[in-house]
Computed example of a mutant assay.
Amino acid sequence: MQDTTLRTDFWGSLIGYGNLKIKTASAASQIVFDHVPNPESVQALISEQRRRLLAEKLAEQREGLRMQLVKDLRLSLLSQVPDQTLPPGLKPPIVLSWWQKWLATLAKALHFVFFPFEFLFLRPLSWVMRIFAQRRLSRATRTGTSAPASWPPGGLRQTRRCGASTG
């Protein structure tokens, strides 16, 4: 089979029938089916079967070549299962056992329980510590004394404006 051609006239498109022509490489050269109901699905079915047949032939050729190489090189067969490759960008799915699923569910539950504690207590505490550190640093610069070297822990980030220098 070389190609399939679908022809429908006005009435055929209204009622849902058409003529399907299949071109082959044989002496008969073409096969015509007249007044085929639902011709688009028939054409798609024929194309799908052709694609499957070509894929099977290719797989048989590859397997025959593989077996010939194994025989000629005297190799032992490593695997009878053909490689199954995923499209690029996709990772194989991770299969978790029942205890891994249970542990993941427990971790999610604990996260939801302790997340408000982090959001309501720890973050505001770090904001308050930053404000006190900034006040202490500004007070030290106003009075001319230096802030302790250990304060604030981790240091403060200072922003510079264009043309301004820090002393």
Score class of each variant (00 low, 15 high):
Asp3Met: 06
Asp3Cys: 00
Thr5Ser: 10
Arg7Asp: 05
Thr8Met: 14
Asp9Trp: 08
Trp11Met: 10
Gly12Ala: 01
Ser13Met: 05
Leu14Phe: 08
Ile15Val: 15
Ile15Cys: 03
Gly16His: 03
Asn19Ala: 07
Leu20Ile: 04
Leu20Ala: 02
Lys21Gln: 14
Lys23Ile: 10
Thr24Ala: 14
Ser26Asp: 15
Ala27Thr: 14
Ala28Tyr: 04
Gln30Met: 01
Ile31Arg: 07
Ile31Thr: 14
Val32Phe: 05
Asp34Tyr: 13
Asp34Ser: 12
Pro37Asp: 05
Asn38Ser: 12
Asn38Ala: 14
Pro39Leu: 06
Ser41Lys: 11
Ser41Val: 15
Ser41Tyr: 00
Gln43Arg: 13
Leu45Lys: 10
Ile46Val: 15
Gln49Asn: 15
Arg50Lys: 13
Arg50Asn: 12
Arg50Ala: 12
Arg52Pro: 01
Arg52Leu: 15
Leu53Asn: 12
Leu53Pro: 00
Leu54Arg: 06
Glu56Cys: 09
Glu56Asp: 14
Glu56Tyr: 10
Lys57Cys: 06
Leu58Cys: 09
Ala59Ser: 14
Arg62Cys: 07
Arg62Asp: 11
Glu63Ile: 06
Gly64Asp: 09
Gly64Asn: 13
Arg66Leu: 14
Arg66Val: 09
Gln68Thr: 10
Leu69Glu: 11
Leu69Gln: 10
Val70Asn: 03
Val70Thr: 09
Val70Met: 13
Lys71Asn: 12
Arg74Trp: 04
Leu77Asp: 06
Leu77Gln: 15
Leu78Lys: 11
Leu78Gln: 07
Gln80Asn: 09
Asp83Gln: 15
Asp83Ile: 10
Asp83His: 08
Gln84Ala: 12
Thr85Asn: 12
Leu86Ile: 07
Leu86Ser: 03
Leu86Met: 08
Gly89Arg: 06
Leu90Val: 07
Lys91Phe: 02
Ile94Trp: 02
Ile94Ser: 08
Leu96Lys: 06
Trp98Val: 09
Gln100Met: 08
Gln100Trp: 06
Lys101Trp: 01
Trp102Ile: 00
Trp102Leu: 13
Ala104Cys: 06
Thr105Met: 06
Leu106Asn: 04
Ala107Phe: 03
Lys108Ser: 15
Leu110Lys: 04
Leu110Gly: 09
His111Val: 05
His111Lys: 10
Phe112Met: 11
Phe112Tyr: 13
Phe114Asn: 04
Pro116Met: 02
Phe117Asn: 06
Phe117Arg: 03
Phe117Met: 12
Glu118His: 10
Phe119Ser: 08
Phe121Asp: 00
Phe121Arg: 03
Arg123Thr: 07
Arg123Trp: 04
Arg123Pro: 01
Pro124Trp: 02
Leu125Glu: 09
Leu125Ala: 15
Leu125Lys: 10
Ser126Met: 06
Ser126Trp: 02
Trp127Thr: 05
Met129Ala: 12
Arg130Met: 07
Phe132Ala: 11
Ala133Met: 03
Gln134Phe: 03
Gln134Pro: 01
Arg135Glu: 03
Ser138Phe: 01
Arg139Thr: 02
Ala140Glu: 04
Ala140Tyr: 00
Thr141Phe: 08
Thr141Cys: 01
Thr141Arg: 13
Thr145Glu: 12
Ser146Gln: 07
Pro148Gly: 05
Ala149Ile: 04
Ser150Met: 03
Ser150Gln: 07
Gly155Tyr: 02
Leu156Val: 08
Arg157Gln: 04
Gln158His: 13
Cys162Phe: 13
Ala164Gly: 05
Ala164Thr: 14
Ala164Ser: 10
Ala164Val: 09
Gly167Lys: 09
